[in-house]
């Protein structure tokens, strides 16, 4: 029996350093499986995974689907999208309906913070948070950590600069929690309008200049800037944002020579990142996608095999 004392993965909060290391080690194994010609295992044969996506996300959903299938689970996708019905009402009603179908794991993406926690209270199976509002996106932080660990050999004492729209980013929150738990040094670089209140107490160093924030960094993690936030409401314009905060080859020079460039995708080329960098030698953006499948395999296998998922009343 494996040692992982959690039934759900709702966030990085609540995970300890050994929990995280356990998942990353397991994900390393999953990478090997994914690189074999025969990629399918029977670990989760007979179990049902439902991907419940209230927000459209082709890549995350595909990644979870592939992960489930490689483990031999039956995978069903439900894309609820933005229906006209009150989103929250749909969440609980849909959850109860799905619960009655006796799935073994529900993967939830929802636009409201806390949605995964709410779902976990109402259903009998494991819940994996695939992003809830501006709260957390734990598998993204795990895949980022795996990417870094494989490239740098460790997570402790490396300097990671998270740049861009931290305010609205669940990816940033999960990464801050995870990297701190693993002993990394975390910086955030953003205009003050894109930083949450109390950011300085979140275990990070705060910078408003890319040059200073990237100095000696081992990893430069860029965040996506949502289109509706570009023109006037949070930053004056795309042009001004790119000028000060867009990652190009010139700004990247401030970081260590072998610094990794990361992005959770989908990228806005020419907004937060220049193509020369996104496609350049330091970019590990494609590797992140590969690690995503491996991490999700590790998470689902761990949740579904470390707890009793036999007969339920």
């Amino acid at each position: 029996m494996v040692f992982f004392p959690h039934r759900h993965l709702l966030g990085i909060k609540g995970l300890t350093e050994p929990d995280i290391t356990f998942l990353l080690d397991k994900a390393d194994e999953a990478v090997k499986i994914s690189r074999q010609r025969e990629k399918k295992t029977s670990t989760l044969r007979g179990l049902t995974q439902i991907n419940l996506f209230f927000e459209a996300s082709t890549r995350t959903q595909a990644s979870f689907e592939l992960a489930g299938k490689r483990l031999g689970a039956d995978v069903m996708n439900m894309s609820v999208g933005n229906s006209s019905v009150s989103k929250g009402e749909t969440l609980i009603d849909t959850a109860m309906t799905l619960n009655a179908m006796r799935p073994d794991v529900l993967v939830l993406r929802h636009s409201s913070a806390g949605a995964a926690a709410l779902l976990a209270q109402k259903v009998a199976c494991s819940v994996v948070n695939a992003g809830d509002g501006q709260h957390e996106h734990p598998t993204q932080a795990l895949l980022d950590a795996l990417t870094i660990r494989r490239a740098k050999g460790k997570l402790s004492r490396i300097i990671v600069a998270i740049c861009g729209d931290v305010l609205h980013s669940r990816v940033a929150r999960s990464n801050i929690l995870l990297l701190n738990a693993m002993g990394a040094r975390v910086r955030v670089v953003a205009p003050a309008t894109l930083l949450p209140s109390g950011i300085a107490q979140m275990g990070v160093e705060v910078f408003h200049s890319m040059e200073e924030g990237l100095k000696d960094a081992d990893v430069v993690m860029m965040l996506r800037l949502q289109r509706e936030r570009m023109s006037g409401s949070f930053v004056p314009s795309v042009r001004e944002y790119f000028h000060f905060y867009g990652l190009d080859a010139e700004k990247l020079k401030a970081a260590k020579e072998d610094a990794l460039v990361m992005h959770p995708g989908p990228m806005n080329r020419g907004v937060e990142i220049a193509s020369e960098v996104a496609d350049g030698p330091q970019s590990v953006i494609e590797s992140q996608v590969e690690m995503g499948v491996a991490v999700r395999m590790a998470v689902m296998e761990t949740l579904l095999t470390s707890h009793d998922h036999g007969e339920r009343a």
């Binding site: 806390g114 809830d132 509002g133 957390e136 209140s197 109390g198 979140m202």
Partner: peptide
């Protein structure tokens, strides 16, 4: 508004 709201990913009222 504050640290607690920021961690929860909820928008704050100052």
């Amino acid at each position: 508004e504050g640290l607690f709201a920021s961690w929860l990913g909820l928008s704050g009222v100052p």
